[in-house]
Every structure is written in structure tokens, then in C-alpha cells.
Design a protein around this nucleic acid. Structure first.
Length: 328
DNA sequence: TTCTCCGCCTATGGGGCCTT
DNA sequence: AAGGCCCCATAGGCGGAGAA
């Protein structure tokens, strides 16, 4: 079921765009797919670029011929109309107090080059994104295969929170969302939990609701199973998944991929030493991290996450629900 | 009564496939 | 390539039944 993803790369999508940037999209998944694709081209080509239409259709997983092009135009219009309210950032040497911008600035097709589309993305938006560093990695091969917005948005959520530690302990990733947050995520306005999630999951229910369909679609496309239930006491949806392969061993509470960075950051910020000995210190700290013997590791890891630009919600996920093994 | 949950319903998305 | 027709899947509203 899990296929190789060589053909299409991974886009590191900024979290401002992951969190319900598209407000109301009817039943369309296309606007979110479009953002992922355009963001990818922005990353490799800059804020202004030209795309061949067949290429764009392929990236969106649409029919080869142009019968969906009207929908593409409408989606671009939607991206232009959707505005973000930005605060406190630098733009070309000036401090910006606030700015109202949309991701897409312009999209043009000329009649003498009907197979090409010129895209311009907001440079202010880009400057803002550059100054923040919370990214969600999305595989474009998966992106193009999603057919429902529930599948794609849930998958983006999963990718975003995948490796954050939580109190369930080793090997289990988790995130909790209220109905309001779910509505924000999908651009919906449901009054009741049952309108978007039915317990009769997965097979018995003929008319599966959004979250159920999304989970099913993620399973079919990626082979990943995300568990979901509604916690009535907390009034929150609880999503969980296996992430045991991100830790080097059972003792270690820091994800494999973060250990080097974290150790480096720790030595630079916490250890006073001459430069020559730094690599030695880093190695020592790495060892301590792996054995979970670094004093105050949870506190320093939170500081590290903050320094890396993780936003409040993500850090709170770690901070409030630190792993059992962390002795505070 | 109000809330929760589920299945039914309808408009529409969108691919398959045929013909031109 | 492009249009037409077909047909299945989907989003989300609605109402009924049962629970709280």
C-alpha cells in the first residue's frame, strides 16, 4: 500500500497555512492541495514563477486534459480572496505593525501562451513566513492523491504533531482538538460532534462522517492508521498514532532527528567552554540525551522548541503533557 | 426538554469512456 | 484534445429515535 515517493518531493508548508487558512471551501479539497503545490514552487523558484498547465494538473492529481481548468481558476480566485491578518514582522528593513495579505497576489494566462500560467505570491506573506519557522512537511505525492479535504487536513495535522512527545509515553503520538478547533481546521461550522464524527467506525456505517472518511482515506493513501475518539469529559477529539520509530531507544524521550540539533543548541546556550572542546561536549550531551540522563532535559527541550520557532500550542502539547519518564 | 447519534437525501464533484 | 453522457462518491443539512 505504501508506495515510494520519488517522483514528487516534500513541501515544507508553513503552519500559518496549515491551520485552516482556507475558511470555507464547500466540499473541495483542491484549495488546500493548491496551496501545497504553489508553496512548493515558491520554495524552489521564488515569489514569481511560471507553470505549465499540464504540470500543475499533474501536481494536483487532476485529469490530464483541461476540463478541470475552470475549477483551477476558481480555486486561485479563492486563494486570492482568502486573507491573513499578520502582525509584527520585518519587511524590507521596516517594522510592520499589521498587514492584511493573501497568499496569492496574481495569476495570469496569456492568450499567446495558453498552456502556461504565471503565478505571483505575496512577497509580504513570504517575508512573514521567513521570520517564523514552524513548518509541516507534506509529501506532494500524497497531496495530489487526496480527494477529500477531511483526509488532507487530518493528514496535515498528523504530520504536524507526529513527533511531539506526550504523556502516553514511548511510541505513541497524540493530539487533542475541540470541536471549535476542528471547525477551524476544516473551515466548517458544525454544532454537534456527531455531525462530523460517528462512533460506528470504520465499517458498519454506510454514511461515514468527515473525520471517519478522512481517516479511511489516509489509511488507503499512506497506510497510516490514525485512531480517533471523542472524550466527553474533556469535550475534545483525541487523535492518536504510532510513532515508535522516531526514538532511538526506549529510554530516550527526544526524537531521533532532533537529538543532534538539540545537543548543539544545548552546548551553545548552556555550556561555557572554549571553542576547541565544543565537539567533544556535543558528543557527551548526545549520549546523555539518548540515555535520558541529562538533568532538566524536559525544560531545556521546551526552550529548544521555542528557539526553533514552534508555536505556543505545540509547546503546550509538550509542556503540559510531558512524557511519564520525564522526572520533573 | 435538550443533546447525541445516525441514516437519509440532494446537489454537485469528478473520473471513465465513447465519439468526433 | 474536447465535448457529451453516464454513474458513483461526497458534503453537509435534516429529521427521527433514543439518551441524558
Amino acid at each position: 500500500m505504501k508506495e515510494k515517493l520519488k517522483k514528487y518531493p516534500i513541501v515544507k508548508k508553513h503552519n500559518s497555512l496549515t491551520d485552516g487558512y482556507i475558511k470555507k471551501t464547500d466540499k473541495e479539497v483542491l484549495p488546500d492541495k493548491m496551496i501545497n503545490v504553489l508553496y512548493h514552487f515558491y520554495e524552489i523558484k521564488g515569489e514569481k514563477f511560471t507553470l505549465k498547465l499540464p504540470e500543475l494538473r499533474a501536481y494536483l492529481g487532476l485529469d490530464r486534459n483541461g476540463r478541470n481548468d475552470d475549477r483551477i481558476y476558481k480555486v486561485l480566485q479563492k486563494l486570492k480572496e482568502n486573507v491573513l491578518f499578520l502582525r509584527d514582522f520585518n519587511y524590507k528593513g521596516r517594522e510592520v505593525k499589521m498587514a492584511i495579505v493573501s497568499f496569492l497576489n496574481e495569476a495570469t494566462i496569456y492568450k499567446d501562451k495558453e498552456n502556461e500560467i504565471e503565478i505571483e505570491i505575496s512577497s509580504k506573506m513570504i517575508e512573514f513566513l521567513k521570520q517564523k519557522t514552524g513548518y509541516t512537511p507534506i509529501e506532494l505525492e500524497y497531496n495530489k492523491r487526496f480527494k477529500t479535504k477531511f483526509g488532507l487536513k487530518l493528514y496535515e495535522m498528523y504530520k504536524r504533531y507526529y513527533d511531539l512527545p506526550n504523556k502516553e509515553g514511548f511510541g505513541y503520538g497524540k493530539v487533542e482538538k475541540t470541536l471549535e478547533q476542528i471547525n477551524a481546521m476544516f473551515g466548517t461550522n458544525y454544532k454537534h460532534t456527531a455531525d462530523i464524527f460517528n462512533k460506528k467506525y470504520p465499517h458498519e456505517s454506510k454514511t461515514a462522517k468527515g473525520i471517519n472518511r478522512g481517516i479511511e482515506e489516509i489509511k488507503n493513501i499512506t497506510g497510516i492508521y490514525i485512531h480517533c475518539f471523542y472524550d466527553k469529559e474533556k469535550k475534545k477529539f483525541v487523535f492518536g498514532w504510532d510513532n515508535s520509530n522516531i526514538y532511538p531507544n526506549e529510554e530516550c524521550v527526544i526524537p531521533k532527528k532532533s537529538i543532534k540539533k538539540f545537543a548543539n543548541w544545548y552546548v551553545l546556550n548552556r555550556v561555557k567552554s572554549d571553542k576547541e572542546n565544543l565537539p567533544t561536549y556535543v558528543k557527551e550531551i548526545e549520549k546523555k540525551i539518548k540515555n535520558n540522563t541529562l538533568n532538566g532535559i524536559h525544560k531545556f527541550y521546551m526552550e529548544f522548541l521555542k528557539a526553533m520557532g514552534k508555536d505556543k500550542e505545540e509547546i503546550a502539547n509538550c509542556w503540559n503533557k510531558y512524557i511519564k519518564k520525564w522526572k520533573c
